[in-house]
Amino acid sequence: MISFLFYLAFLLLFVIAAVYAERKTAAFIQSRLGPMEAGPKGVLQTIADLLKMLQKEDISATAVDKFPFLIAPVIVFSAVFAGYSVLPVNAGLSGSTIESGLFLLLAIVSLDVLGILMAGWASNNKYSLYGAMRSVAQIVSYEIPLGLSVLSVVIITGTLDLQKISFLQQGNGLPDWNIVQHPLLIFSFVIFFISGLAESNRTPFDLPESESELIGGYHTEYSGFRWGIFMLSEYGMMLLLSILGAILFFGGWNSPLPNIGGLKLYELTSGMVLGTFWLLAKALVLIFVQMWLRWTLPRLRVDQLMSLSWKYLTPISLLMLFICAVWKWWLMS
């Protein structure tokens, strides 16, 4: 319960900072300056935008299907945010202690496709419907490599509880991280990251939104606060996948500094506050990689998107699952 409250507050702060960071990253990669006017170096820009957005009228067009239209953003956000319930914050603060925590997370997060489809259908707008259809096709396809790559970690660690996975990587900093202990997981991580991008509708997999061709896709018809909820859940999904990646592959809340001889760096840099810091810092680094990717790669075509998932990621992740199983069997014997 406490972890839930922590993540709710953190998510809201994160979105404000991340929108600014995203715009600045985009600007720097394109040799621009980005927002500069509101506050020093434009730091208050997102807050100004937020205040503007909250004042906007809650428009719903005459032809929309009222009930699904109004409820869709709520479903999307609650599906994404429910995923946070099983995430641990630090050694002393685990999320909901469900035995099958990781599977619950994947299952409940994929419910957001329902909200997106509702939004696209209820908008009664062909572009929104296109966006929603693409989103459904994409999320359903990428669920498979995502699940399989997560399963590789589960096979190696032997548990579905995210807090237990974190504890298994405890002890000596960087060398104890899953990705260093079991270098095979590098491939799984790449697949996890790519399918994670597709799950959270980020560029280069932002076909459902396609600002340039679908004008926002499934949330074209939304305005004001309801649109803000979609935005919030998009960033929430980014953060969720980054935190999940950090826990599964990069040691969760464990400090990256190893003990060197008598210098107990690991013990010095561990603890409640520092543990939280390490987890969020790792997640934020992954967020930066997501932003960096967004401003580097162009959007995929629909057929390329499908062939990437079905022809490349799914077979490779199946193969990785098999290799990880063999690796685990070799470690056990």
Binding site: T25, A27, F28, I29, S31, W292, L293, W295, T296
Partner: peptide, 11 residues
């Protein structure tokens, strides 16, 4: 990615 991060640091 190498190209875009170069621009990022050049900023």
């Amino acid at each position: 990615m190498a190209l875009s991060i170069l621009y990022f640091f050049n900023a």
